[in-house]
Simulated assay, not measured.
Amino acid sequence: MATAIRTSTLRPLARARPRHAFRTTTQTPPRHAPARRFLNTETAPVLYSAHAKVVGARTGHVEGDDLNVDLTMAKSLGGPGDKGKTNPEELFAAGYGACFQSAMNAVAPSLNVRMPSAKEDSIVESTVHLVGDMGKLDMGIRVELTVKVKGLEKEDLEKVVAKAREVCPYSRATRGNVDTRIEVVKVE
């Protein structure tokens, strides 16, 4: 004999389940189940390798194959904030923004969305915040991306951003470990 479950018994469980909606403010978008990933990063073929040699930590110098930059400690962290020099957070912000924008361009055709051809009509502004407590050496980062694309409907842009978030290597590397907030801005 089958046991019947009363729907009134299930209602509290259904109400307890969180409901998410994609927001286009600086709030964190919903954590969608990541797309099934078949790539094993341990054994996948190498497409490109970047190498950097750092001497002198946050106040030192970085050299790479095509990189030659001096570092400075940001003023807000007690350093001089020397003009013409950079820091790890700026480098990470630049890398994440460029990678995310490339992911947007790569996924747009699969969504039947045409990205603008003029470079200045598609902008990703990225901010990397160093957060935590320096005294206790308990620090992390938080990321904010602002995506501005001219000529796309906001709905189409949101689809592109959501898909880019699934495939961008930086987004994949930081998923579940770094709070990343994306704001989508429609530009006329």
Rank of each mutant, 00 (worst) to 15 (best):
V184M: 08
A52C: 05
T86H: 11
E125V: 12
G81S: 14
L67I: 01
P45C: 03
D66Q: 06
D121A: 01
L145S: 11
R19T: 10
E166N: 02
A33T: 10
A164M: 03
Y170E: 03
T24C: 05
K163S: 06
T127M: 12
L10I: 05
L71H: 01
D82W: 09
M115D: 06
D156R: 09
A103C: 10
P45E: 02
N105R: 14
N40H: 10
L157F: 04
S76A: 07
A74T: 11
V178Y: 03
P30V: 00
G64H: 07
M73Y: 06
A118F: 06
K186V: 04
V69F: 15
G176C: 08
E63Q: 13
N87K: 02
G84M: 04
R31G: 08
E125R: 01
R17H: 14
D82Q: 14
V62E: 07
T180P: 06
K119V: 02
S49Q: 15
K148G: 08
A16W: 09
R37A: 12
H32T: 02
F100D: 06
K186H: 08
V128H: 00
L157I: 03
G79P: 09
Y96F: 03
V46M: 12
R11A: 15
L91M: 13
H20C: 12
G81N: 13
D133V: 00
V149F: 04
E158N: 11
L137V: 00
M73A: 15
V54Y: 05
M73L: 14
F100S: 00
S171M: 00
T43N: 15
T3Q: 13
